[in-house]
Design a protein around this nucleic acid. Sequence first.
DNA 1: AATCTTTTCCC
DNA 2: CGGGAAAAGAT
Length: 925
Amino acid sequence: MPDAYENINMAMRSILTTDIGDNEDPYFQFNDLTSMSSTSVLSPFSSSGSQGNMSMTSPMSTSSSPMHITDDYINLTNAVTILGEPYISVLVQPMEKFRFRYKSEMVGTHGSLLGVYNGRKRNKNNVPTVKLHNYLDKAIIRCTLVTTDEDLRIPHAHRLVRRVDSADIGDPHYMEVSSQNDFTAEFVGMGIIHTARRHVKDEIVRKLREEALEERKRSNIDATLNLRDDAQIKADAEQYQKTINLNSVSLCFQGFIKDEHNIMRPITAPVYSNSVNNLKSALTGELKICRIDKYTSSCEGGEEVFILVEKVSKKNIKIKFFELDDDDTEIWMDYGRFSELDVHHQYAMVFRTPAYRDRNITSPKEVFIQLERPSDSYCSEPIKFTYKPTDRMIGRKRTRISHSNSAELVQALAFNNDILMNTSLTSTPLSNDSTEISKEIKKMLDDRCSSSEFRDFVEHINLDSKFLLYETLLNQGGEDKLTYDGAPSKKASINFNICYLQNTLSKFLSLYQCCMLDDKLFAKDVIIDTIKDMKMKPREAKDIIKISFKDRTTYGDTPLHCALRYGQKNNVKRILMLMSTLNTDAEELVNIRNSSGKTPLHYAASQDQPEIIQALLMLGADPNITDHYGQMPLHRAVKFLEAEGSINILLAEKDVNIEANTDYGWSPLQLAAQAGSYHAVYSLIKAGADVNNTDMTYGRTALHIAVEGGHKDIVEFLLKNTKIDVNKKNFSGNTALHTAIVTPGTKAKEICALLVKYGADPHIRNYNRELNNVDGEQIQDIKVEVHSEDENMEECNGQSSFDLASNKPDILQLVSGQNDMLINNTIKEENINDTQKVWMDIDQEKQLASILDETKGWKKLAHYFDYKYLMNIFKQTSSSSLLLLNYIAIQTNTSLSELTNILQNIGEEDAATYMSQILSMKHET
DNA sequence: AATCTTTTCCC
DNA sequence: CGGGAAAAGAT
């Protein structure tokens, strides 16, 4: 069916010989025209509605068009011709995601539908806005809610309400436009009411009826709907309710004018906004990866990764891996592997990584992962992910477990088991070795088996031993069962389980110990054998060395690994000496990785053995090899508090990668900051480490981390001697100051003071929207002028450092810049000079505060500034007024003269008078 | 009966 | 307000 505006256009073109085409700048021309002739243009609609031959089905047909040809027409034609046909454009689109609320939720006020921030003009009201173009008289713009489906735009079952004077008005909404408002309609305060599924049909029927009736009335004012129409509408509604998408709506805008019978007549085609999706629904809600447990995988894929996500539905979610080339073109993609069962309660997922496109990479490859929702192909923000080269080269076949003899192992198990089961571990008379073992076991139990060595062991334990172990365990379990008799009570069975678990654990531990015993002798054995062999065949000495030091234990350890692991310094020395005879051939031996990916250098670094590190490096050890946790020797070395040697030796090595992240996403600097190793931090920074690098899991800089650990010396060093960004936000939007305020500890206050001293901005807000204070009262949003231009609008409602400090009066004073004790005098003076221009100096402030303390006027003042929730804090301090004044000075833009007025208004005459004095003094200077 | 979705409720 | 979660309803 032809639209009215099309017909208008056709009529125009038939009249005119030349077609001026679309206007490049209709706005400009429009202004031109209005200024010269808007008053002389007559309304062309004076006689519409009296037409007898209107189409019954289309209100928009040619004949019902308001632009029919009359004598007035020529006048308008000229204008319209120059302008083009009237149309509506969407100046500000509605936001893409919005929470639809049920009727039952519409008590009180909730947020209204805002516009999307559109880059150019920063509207004061950022709300959906449309503009009517090419029309000179006043007109009406109607806004209704329709379906998103472009092929089927029907009225939507949901309601579009608009709050006008505390009453919600349903759609349609009419807004008058004219030259007065630049033909622009802003739809302020709209909300979307989610029609309950069971009412969808009724609602659609209602809206279709309304629409049909309006259409009828355009041709006949007294028209009503007959039964047949009604039946049709009901049938249609029935159909629509099945397919309608309740989580997505569009706004429909159309221009109208009202004729003398109050009938709306369209003057433009309808225009549809972008879709608005229900924020609450898992079908259309936001997709986000909130947290990931690791961001690396072997290029072979198949590694398990845990992620926490915002609400997803398990049937409608994928995890996409993709790689971009330098031009940001996607060059590879695949999906993470998981089943529906791996999606935990819509908020967490466990998946396996797909293999990288090339399984033979030799350097790490950066790719991205993101969530993808197949139903609307919406994607989350991508996060970085790294594929690492495989370590297939590590041989595990050569296990050198001497007691593969069952009897021997069982005996060993029994032996160790006895030790463990004995209640008093230490009191049992034991040989030296046994004492050591029991200590080990005790330690292991204390660590709850968290040691990576133990995990490696369990993982790589050879099959024979495993079988044997299980067998033993089964037998053991059976015996336990037999000894347990009587009716099973819950308690008893729990006890049994615990007992059983303990047994299992101890078995594994015993086995671990046995292997360790064996491994302890490994280095020595090999050295002895090697030397023996060398004596026998002195000519083949080099080959003998090469071969024998490639031998491996269960863990893939070479003799050198073993000697290092067990602290056998002499063995280490012997091996290194033997290796050094090989010259460059030693490089291969010295870089062998064991089954957890560690080289001898890892162990030397972990144990802080500078001489050995030096020796290994001289033999060609590569300091950049990472173990299976992505750790380089450097990552381990930075943890030592006092030792300077190891780090400096490692850092002196050229090509050492000082920014490398572990699999948990930590750089050496961040680890050093966490460990509290001042020296390591110092050395790394001296070696050029980037202080503003952030860790991958929380987005923290070394500063955040040092603050968290309460390492004041490091914090101070970072602030004083580096260009660290004191106000950098981590993933949750917290700055180091936020962290400092919430971190307990004796040095917390001093650290806060340091941060403030070096420019930490307490106004910065994090992304946490919980605005409840300690008393559970709602904190009103403090009206803080955000100065930074690049901040998003949403970021305004997180917590500032003030909010976090609101129940810690001393820290609050500190961040408010009030405490003189802790802040260095020079800095303080600078601050004062800065604020002095707009604020009073400290003495004047104190004077004013004493006046307000006297009269208790500060309470009124606090009330005026809506600081009710801070009352308790103000009360606790020696001068409530002074703190309040500081608060006002820092958090608001109140000028001195404004303050004077405020004081006047709340009846604080004395204070106001004093203020006037200050003001006049300021004017003089 | 268990689990997911929709609706209501509450802080 | 905006966010979260319980209750009710569906599958």
